[in-house]
Design a protein around this nucleic acid. Structure first.
Length: 260
DNA sequence: AAATTATACAACCGCCGCATT
DNA sequence: CAATGCGGCGGTTGTATAATT
């Protein structure tokens, strides 16, 4: 029976315990967690050891605040997957499932995002969770990226932000987004199916190389990153940082955007 | 300055799926 | 086939710190 050992230590880890666990993992490697307490000389259960390593001591863990593109990706992935934190964290290098879960619950939970946000997962991009005002199909030239330019009036800088096919901003400040720009309507479903079934991502960059055009549907009600002041290009609701797009720049060219 | 409240996040708990016996 | 053990996951709690009153 699990957890039956008496007087196993609980609560916050001491520096000494951390060192013992670290030394043990460095010597024997990750895994075989049931052996770790005895190997390390720790009076902790295997779960506690595993958790301490995977959520805190592992040197691959990325520290510090979540970047804008990470936040956008969390929103987008949560919209597709629901509370499958480990899967979401798997798309964020260096972030743990616990980190993502904690961040979402404190910063992005239902009360703290736009009222139209639907936390229920879905895999069909034709039924986006955000309210659709008016679809605006665009044809982009080969190898081009859809980009919104947002002016920050406070710092007098311009930020480039890319778009995904189902009206959620996926990144900002030069994040690598090519994998999330799906050329056709069903590609996102295929991409996720492939990821779920085979644990592999379909490489859309290669697909784009063999295509003449990328079709991208631009929908209304854009989610704008909190840190941006996009008042030049977007009407922002100061309360919740959601607004309608007024101007859309693609490859430096102004495109028409039809608001309701 | 002290008390209270809110926030962030580390850690625990119970459950599940899978492999082994 | 059932029992057992393990790794892993998501929900939740506990607590230190920050912000507010």
């Amino acid at each position: 029976m699990e957890g039956s050992s008496l007087s196993v230590r609980k609560g916050a880890w001491t520096e000494k315990e951390d060192i013992l666990l670290k030394n043990c993992i460095e010597k024997y490697g990750e895994g075989k967690w049931h052996k770790v307490p005895s190997r390390a000389g720790l009076n902790r259960c295997r779960k506690s050891c595993r958790l301490r390593w995977t959520n805190y001591l592992n040197p691959n863990i990325k520290r510090g605040a979540f970047a804008a593109d990470e936040v956008d990706l969390i929103i987008r992935l949560h919209n597709l997957l629901g509370n499958r934190w480990s899967l979401i964290a798997g798309r964020l290098p260096g972030r743990t499932a616990n980190d993502v879960k904690n961040y979402f619950n404190t910063h992005l939970s239902k009360k703290k995002v736009a009222p139209s946000f639907d936390p229920k997962p879905h895999l069909n991009p034709s039924t986006p969770s955000f309210k659709v005002i008016k679809p605006c199909p665009l044809i982009l030239s080969k190898n081009s990226f859809p980009v919104i330019l947002c002016e920050d009036k406070k710092t007098n800088t311009t930020t480039a932000t890319t778009l995904a096919s189902n009206n959620i901003l996926v990144s900002a400040n030069g994040g690598n987004n090519i994998g999330y720009c799906f050329p056709n309507e069903n590609d996102e479903v295929i991409w996720w199916d492939n990821l779920m079934m085979n644990g592999k991502e379909t490489d859309y960059q290669q697909k784009q190389d063999s295509m003449n055009n990328i079709n991208l549907s631009v929908l209304g009600d854009w989610h704008i990153n909190e840190e941006m002041d996009c008042s030049t290009t977007c009407n922002l609701d100061e309360e919740d940082n959601y607004g309608n797009l007024d101007e859309l720049y693609l490859d430096g060219e102004l495109w028409n955007v039809f608001n309701q």
